[in-house]
């Protein structure tokens, strides 16, 4: 993996230049689908972009220096790490990657929620604190099936590299593991039924309650990038097109990501929000059950 290639994937595709508009598009699509499912018109196409620009233009609340610094650095770290995770996605399985980049990807994906937890606590808001503790509990809960599923893929493919997993994992293992991974996405994206961490009727905006202006814009940005990272991860593992020309791979990657957004949006529109304990229990029982079965299948095959 050359430096140039690395830079391209970080800054152009699937990195910043692609991921930013794609993230906004996915957020718009989710809101639009939600609205249509409810018989409403929904937001205009550029709404997430407008929201971002509007927040950036706002004058931030003056805070104590350290708190202000932390409240800026934490969302920035979330943006940077999520962007890094996107750059590692094996859209072109044969083109790059290195042994162990799966571990790096997982840790980069985890930085976002971790920053949100810390960000909630440093904002010193009661609701931010509750949101942060909920976020922490949920992160622990969904990571059990999330990691088991990834481990099943690794075990099946016999490789810790993303490209290896994408190309070599056995299909029965892959299907089960991907179901478990998809189930984890709503927690990270705060979508129903697993949106307890940002339940506005209980705790306003959760960990971002105290954030305003550009700082909130950074969270929104991180959120948009998370959409791309998580749907992209599933998309690149679900349909690895190894031999086709690069435009075909890009189209497949984008199409699968968008299809995933549609599915998740409809699932969110048709459910109520589960409580914290119920969400955690679901992941520890059902989610982990699916992931564990993937693991069992992987070992039996071996």
């Amino acid at each position: 993996m050359t430096v140039v290639r690395g830079l391209i994937s970080l800054l152009v595709f699937p990195g910043a230049l692609f991921a930013l508009p794609a993230g906004w598009f996915m957020m718009w699509l989710q809101r639009k689908i939600n609205a249509r499912a409810q018989g409403r018109i929904g937001p205009p196409f550029f709404q997430p972009f407008f929201d971002f620009v509007k927040l950036l233009a706002k004058e931030p609340v003056v805070r104590p220096r350290l708190q202000g610094f932390l409240m800026t650095v934490l969302p920035l770290a979330a943006v940077a790490s999520t962007l890094g995770a996107i750059a590692l996605l094996p859209v072109f399985p044969k083109a790059g990657g290195f042994s162990g980049d799966l571990v790096l990807l997982v840790s980069l994906i985890e930085v976002g929620p971790l920053c949100a937890v810390l960000g909630g606590f440093v904002s010193r808001s009661l609701y931010g604190g509750i949101g942060a503790s909920r976020e922490a509990v949920l992160t622990l809960a969904y990571n059990v099936p999330f990691l088991i599923a990834l481990f099943a893929l690794v075990a099946s493919a016999g490789s810790f590299s993303l490209a290896g997993v994408a190309l070599a994992a056995a299909w029965p293992v892959r299907v089960l593991a991907l179901i478990a991974l998809v189930a984890c996405i709503p927690v990270k994206l705060h979508l129903n039924p697993f949106s307890a961490a940002s339940a506005e009727q209980e705790i306003y905006a959760g960990s971002t309650t105290e954030y305003d202006g550009p700082r909130l814009a950074l969270w929104e940005l991180a959120h948009a990038l998370e959409w791309v990272a998580l749907t992209g991860l599933v998309a690149s593992l679900a349909f690895p097109v190894a031999d086709a020309a690069w435009p075909v791979r890009v189209v497949v990657f984008v199409a699968v990501s968008v299809a995933l957004v549609v599915v998740l949006s409809f699932a969110a529109a048709s459910t109520a929000r589960l409580k914290l304990a119920q969400t955690a229990r679901w992941f520890l029982l059902c989610g982990s059950g699916i992931a564990l079965s993937a693991l069992v299948v992987a070992f039996v095959r071996l």
């Binding site: 609205a35 249509r36 499912a37 409810q38 018989g39 409403r40 929904g42 529109a269 048709s270 459910t271």
Partner: peptide, 17 residues
């Protein structure tokens, strides 16, 4: 899955706004 009936109805009918 009755909620899906409501949702498909809403999607088919278009926005009521």
């Amino acid at each position: 899955m009755n909620i899906l009936n409501i949702i498909t109805g809403n999607v088919a009918r278009g926005p009521q706004t």
